[in-house]
Structures are given as structure tokens and as C-alpha cells.
Design a protein around this nucleic acid. Structure first.
Length: 271
DNA sequence: AAAATCCACAACCGCTCTCAG
DNA sequence: GCTGAGAGCGGTTGTGGATTT
């Protein structure tokens, strides 16, 4: 879109693992220019890769703010709960796990969750597996599975738009009773870097654009959507913010209190 | 020590959706 | 309305390190 095929030659694309030099080229280019049209990125960055490959590499590995390493227990719980709700909608699940990619969650699910469920509840999980592995089945309507409490959403879209979800099996962070009162925030990792670089340029160059994960207090940058100003009295991890403002704030990573707001913002219906 | 197997993760493939011409 | 190209997503495969035999 916006990229004409005639603009670009069709080089032979390299495949396989990315070298550190390729990573550096891609990272430097995107941080400096933004990705724009992905198909033009490898040409402009001097890479013999497809645009698709560059996009994947950036999203899954090079993008600032990515978490690496083990999933925390909160993240595990979140993945489990959201997978129960959404099925294999990895990108949707990833939206609720800042710093995690859909690919990472997908791999994690395959490697860990299935194994653990199988270990814990072999009978029930065998039914779940049949249900989930059937491409025609709707994971949210898997009625063959009486042991699982699955709400009757017909699609992930209806879940996204719903403001009345009350499934008690979800972690508390997803059970906000007054979602409508929450502000709509877009977090830094969803920004194209060129739109965000004014604020976070120095931090981006340090490789940690949006979140300091070294302690229980995480630094978050975001952007307030909508028309209403945001009052810190209602939500205790932000200062007052006006619509359109880019903000930086610190919040305590405690899923049972402040992070409930954080996650609900992520629903971002208007995005 | 070497071979076989397992496992986690990175990357590719193919499909669908969206949008501009 | 049709078509082609790009973006995005989910499934699958490949790779390399770790562990076991």
C-alpha cells in the first residue's frame, strides 16, 4: 500500500538465521527512518531479505521494549485465561502482554502450557486439544468440553467490544467492573517509532524504549486517545494527562491493583 | 566421548484481509 | 467491481543447544 512494485527490484532473498550485522542494519534503519513500507526496508537498509522477513525480525526480536526470558506466573495465568477466551488468537493475546510477541506466546503455549495441562488434567486436556486442533471449531464455543467454563462469545471481536465480561475464571486484572470509565491509552510499543522518537529518542537509542522491567515499578510511555482529559485521582499510576498528550509514568506491576487499569486500557476499543 | 533424542525458539510458508489504482 | 500488492496472522518447520543413553 503506497508501495509500487515497480519501485523495487526483485533481489534473491537470503533465508535462515539473522546475523548480528543484519540485525544491526535493520535496527539502525528502522530506528532512524521508521519502517514505512516494509518491502522497501531491505532495499534501503542494504539487506538481502524480504520485507516480510524484516518485519518479522523487527516485531519478534529487534523492536524496543520486548521482554526476553521466562514468562512470569502472572503472564502464564494471563495466557491461559486469554487462550481459554480467544483460542489461538495469538496477536490478540499478545496485546494484553506488553513486551511479548504473538510468536513468543504461541511458542510458549506449545512448549509449556499444553504440557502442563496434559500433566495436570490429562482427560480434560485431551478433549480440549481435539477441540482446538479442529480448524473448523470455534474455540469459544467448544461445547464438547463441559469441564471448561467457556463464555458464549462468538468471536474474538465480540470479546474485544464487550464491556460486560464477567468470567470469574479470568485473572482479576480482567475483571474491571467499570471499564467504560477508563481512559483509552496507546502504549509506546504500538507506536511507529517515527511518531514517538521525539519523546523517547534518547531512551530508544539505549534499547529500552518504554518499560524498565528491572524492578516491580515499571516505567511506561503512552499516548492518551479520545476527548476527555485523564485525572490521576482515578487511576493511580499516571499524572494528569490531556487527550493527545504523550506521557511517561511509573506504575507498580501488581496485577491485582494498579495493573488492572493498565490491562483494561489495553482493550483499546477505539484503536 | 560420541550418538541419539529432546526441547525451545527463530524463521518461513501460506492464507486472508485491506486498500489503492 | 476487479485486480494486484502489501500487511498481518496463525500454523508449521528448521536449527542449535542441552540432555540422555
Amino acid at each position: 500500500m503506497g508501495c509500487r512494485s515497480s519501485d523495487k527490484p526483485k533481489p534473491k532473498h537470503r533465508k535462515g538465521l539473522w546475523s548480528p550485522e543484519e540485525d544491526q542494519r535493520l535496527k539502525n534503519y528502522v530506528l532512524k527512518h521508521g519502517h514505512g513500507c516494509w518491502s522497501s526496508v531491505p532495499v534501503n537498509a542494504g539487506l538481502q531479505r524480504s520485507g516480510k522477513s524484516c518485519r518479522l525480525r523487527w516485531i519478534n526480536y529487534l523492536r524496543p521494549g520486548l521482554k526476553r526470558g521466562m514468562f512470569s506466573s502472572v503472564e502464564e495465568e494471563t495466557v491461559l485465561a486469554l487462550h481459554r477466551l480467544l483460542g489461538n488468537k495469538w496477536s490478540l493475546i499478545a496485546q494484553h502482554l506488553p513486551g511479548r510477541t504473538d510468536n513468543e506466546i504461541k511458542n510458549y503455549w506449545h512448549a509449556h502450557q499444553k504440557k502442563q495441562l496434559l500433566k495436570a488434567e490429562p482427560d480434560r486436556f485431551s478433549k480440549t486439544s481435539q477441540c482446538l486442533s479442529n480448524p473448523d471449531s470455534q474455540p469459544l464455543n467448544c461445547s464438547k468440553n463441559p469441564g471448561m467454563r467457556i463464555p458464549s462469545y462468538e468471536s474474538s471481536e465480540s470479546f474485544e467490544k464487550s464491556s460486560t465480561y464477567t468470567d470469574q475464571s479470568l485473572p482479576q486484572m480482567f475483571q474491571s467492573p467499570n471499564r467504560s470509565s477508563l481512559p483509552k491509552l496507546m502504549f509506546a510499543e504500538w507506536f511507529s517509532l517515527d511518531s514517538f522518537s521525539d519523546l523517547a529518542g534518547s531512551e530508544a537509542s539505549g534499547g529500552d524504549l518504554h518499560e524498565n522491567q528491572s524492578s516491580e515499578h515499571s516505567l511506561v510511555h503512552g499516548y492518551l486517545l479520545g476527548d476527555e482529559p485523564f485525572c490521576s485521582e482515578d487511576h493511580n499510576f499516571l499524572n494528569d494527562v490531556s487527550p493527545g498528550d504523550v506521557f511517561s509514568s511509573q506504575f507498580q506491576l501488581d496485577c491485582h491493583s494498579t495493573a488492572s487499569d493498565f490491562i483494561d486500557f489495553n482493550s483499546g476499543e477505539s484503536l
